[in-house]
Design a binder for these strands. Structure first.
Lengths: 201, 201
DNA sequence: GGGAATAAATAGATCCAGTACAAGAATTAG
DNA sequence: CTAATTCTTGTACTGGATCTATTTATTCCC
């Protein structure tokens, strides 16, 4: 590990941003304000985050790694569709009642509009990509690039993600007394997996 | 209809933009270039489009109206889930082999990145919202605002949209000899609907 | 015809996210 | 101590988006 060590700025930036978003809303908060409160220069912000909106989805981005691991552990499962479902539940296991991301629970306070909420879905496309690749590898045995990929694999991936998104949204909306995310996910994801299984996957 | 009539700028802007996107890519094309080629001022652009990315998704936005109509025609169907499936197929019927939106077929030429594709999904959320409201009204008899909405309705809506997105993506990627979009949609959407039906919806 | 009323087009200015590049500061390996 | 490495900062710029005000085109009505 050579070179100048990173200041502990990432966390400070996240916290400063959360405060400001809650105080005055997302749109009215400038990157300059965030960096000022965090005590770093404006440019440093872009050393840690690619964009302002990235601040909202750190947990989601982190869950991508969790999903990667969960799928890797199931690389030889004999029921790939079931494995995907399991992997999603395992990934969601970390989200207990008190660990709902602010952007989901406080989006009204922050003034998060439809565009921005959609940006969250956008990031979830990486999750879908992961699931798709897993399914293709498990069900078709290879990973053909691009257009050759089976339509069904992508469909499962995106449909399952949609179902999961619905669960996450409702989970967050249910307030502090909510049950763990997993219990929501089960109800929304399983029917999708079941449907594709019956369709011959 | 009083007041100054709109010049026929909307279409000219769309065409100028498409040309430029194909010539030099989306990112390198500025709104100023588009308006210059269309022969209007830069500000006029924002009379017709809310943002640059909106240019990419005019067909998608238009299909929202088609979906609205298709669902309205089925307001009293005795099989709401089947009605949603039908409505999607009807909406897709307009997209024959030769009517694939440029943004989908030429996204590599245009240099459309993940971020921008996500913006497309974002717009599709409006479709999901529509489906969700239809399902709630048909299956629960009312349209409760906000958090009271049944989780399953949103799950179906988002999952079905995901499945549809997969179909659309693959359809566009399959080149000029592609079959109509409907034949792709059937294969991806039906399993989802079927799965939720068996789950008790 | 000749104004109000209305709506669209334009002009000018500003804000701010995001990018690019260069210079400086902190650290480690040798 | 020097060189290589990497984080941090300063400065400048591009371009999307918003705002306000002004001009231009059209219709309604007297």
């Amino acid at each position: 590990m050579v070179g100048r060590p990173r200041a502990s700025s990432q966390r400070m930036l996240e916290e400063a941003a959360s405060e400001l978003f809650l105080e005055q809303g997302y749109a009215k908060t400038t990157i300059e304000q965030i960096t000022q409160r965090a005590g770093v220069s404006r440019n440093t912000f872009f050393n840690y985050f690619g964009s302002k909106s990235e601040l909202l989805w750190v947990e989601l981005d982190a869950s991508l790694q969790a999903l990667t691991d969960a799928l890797a552990e199931r690389a030889t499962a004999d029921d790939p569709l079931g494995a995907v479902e399991e992997a999603l539940l395992v990934t969601a296991a970390g989200f207990t009642a008190d660990r709902a991301p602010l952007v989901l629970t406080q989006y009204d306070v922050m003034g998060i509009d439809a565009e921005l909420r959609a940006a969250g879905l956008a990031r979830a496309l990486a999750h879908a990509e992961l699931i798709e690749r897993y399914l293709v590898a498990r069900l078709w045995g290879v990973d053909p690039r691009g257009a050759a990929r089976p339509l069904q694999a992508r469909a499962v991936a995106l449909a399952v993600l949609g179902a999961a998104a619905a669960a996450v949204g409702r989970w967050a909306a249910d307030g502090p007394t909510r049950s763990p995310l997993v219990s929501y996910l089960e109800r929304t994801v399983h029917p999708v997996v079941d449907g594709y299984r019956r369709a011959g996957l």
